[in-house]
Simulated assay, not measured.
Amino acid sequence: MQLHLQEVPARNGRLWIRHGFKVFQRQPLALSSLFGLFLFVGFVAMLLPGIGPLLTFASLPLLSLGFMLATHLVLQKKTPMASVFIAPLKLTPERRRSQLILCLSYAVVVVLIGLLADWVDGGSTRDLQKLISENADNEVIAQAALDPRLFWGVATRLGLVTLLSVPYWHAPALVHWGGQGVAQALFSSTLALWRNKGAFALNGLLWAAVLMGVAGVISLVFGLLGLAQFAPMALMATGLLMSTVFYASLYFSFVDCFMFGAPPGLLDGDA
């Protein structure tokens, strides 16, 4: 299909979230099940020695594209199935090869970022994770958490992963719907995010505000009810739900930036 990159107003970053919630309301069980299935498969993959983490990282581009396809189906009043995650690999051999290259390159770069961050923090992050997993003494964990190298390790991971997400944000969708090659898709995605940085910045800030607000309300309510010990479970369940809505909203940022098949009026005139 012919795609056309366009610039959108910053306010559309809010609309993407709103439409994500609308789509989720139409098919909450189906979309939640898709995200739960992905988490389960990812957990099983992580258990594989050696290649487990690499396979999990490699699947992330297909996760975002799969949810775009799922959202597209919901808008057509169809129920999305697990097949949305493998549908991108069933097109032409050229597009399948491009998708696999995107997946593999993303995984390799994520692993390299992890190695660099480990070097920056001297392994302090891994040491802290090990202490937590082994249920070490709280005082020992607290002491390890005060290591100043942790900050630089976290900053390196978050900063570089954020930068990495820019070229890969729309790349799988551009290959799937636009038939673009790997290099062109990565470039087009980067250009789209740069030209619409206002909308994406607002989108990110609003998601952060939503998550912080929801977490605060849940903690407060459970605390007032004297059920603070159950708050972490509620926070986890809510986090999974918010993650599902986030992935459902990705479709709208793509169709908005590239004018691809947006349902009439869905992205216009919504104040």
Results as ranks from 00 to 15, higher is better:
2 Q>H: 13
5 L>T: 06
8 V>R: 02
12 N>F: 08
14 R>K: 14
23 V>Y: 02
26 R>M: 10
26 R>I: 09
27 Q>L: 00
30 A>R: 00
31 L>Y: 02
32 S>G: 08
35 F>T: 08
36 G>Y: 15
37 L>E: 04
38 F>R: 12
38 F>G: 00
38 F>W: 15
41 V>A: 12
43 F>D: 06
43 F>H: 14
45 A>H: 03
48 L>F: 07
57 F>M: 05
58 A>W: 10
59 S>K: 06
60 L>P: 00
60 L>Q: 07
61 P>Q: 04
70 A>L: 00
71 T>R: 03
72 H>F: 08
73 L>Y: 13
75 L>H: 12
76 Q>S: 12
82 A>H: 02
84 V>S: 11
85 F>K: 06
88 P>L: 05
93 P>S: 06
98 S>F: 03
102 L>T: 01
103 C>P: 00
105 S>V: 06
111 V>C: 06
112 L>Y: 04
113 I>Y: 11
114 G>T: 04
117 A>Q: 03
119 W>N: 07
120 V>F: 07
122 G>T: 14
125 T>Y: 15
126 R>Q: 11
126 R>W: 13
127 D>Q: 13
128 L>M: 08
133 S>T: 15
137 D>H: 14
137 D>S: 13
137 D>R: 05
138 N>K: 15
155 A>M: 11
160 L>D: 10
162 T>D: 13
164 L>Q: 00
166 V>P: 03
168 Y>C: 03
168 Y>T: 02
181 G>T: 05
182 V>L: 05
184 Q>Y: 01
185 A>S: 02
186 L>T: 01
186 L>K: 01
188 S>N: 08
195 R>V: 06
195 R>Q: 05
198 G>A: 00
198 G>H: 01
200 F>Q: 02
204 G>W: 05
204 G>Y: 06
206 L>V: 13
210 V>T: 11
213 G>S: 10
215 A>K: 10
215 A>I: 08
217 V>K: 01
222 F>Q: 09
228 A>T: 15
229 Q>H: 14
231 A>K: 11
235 L>G: 05
237 A>I: 01
239 G>Y: 01
243 S>E: 05
250 L>S: 07
253 S>Q: 03
254 F>D: 00
259 M>E: 15
261 G>K: 14
271 A>I: 14
271 A>Y: 11
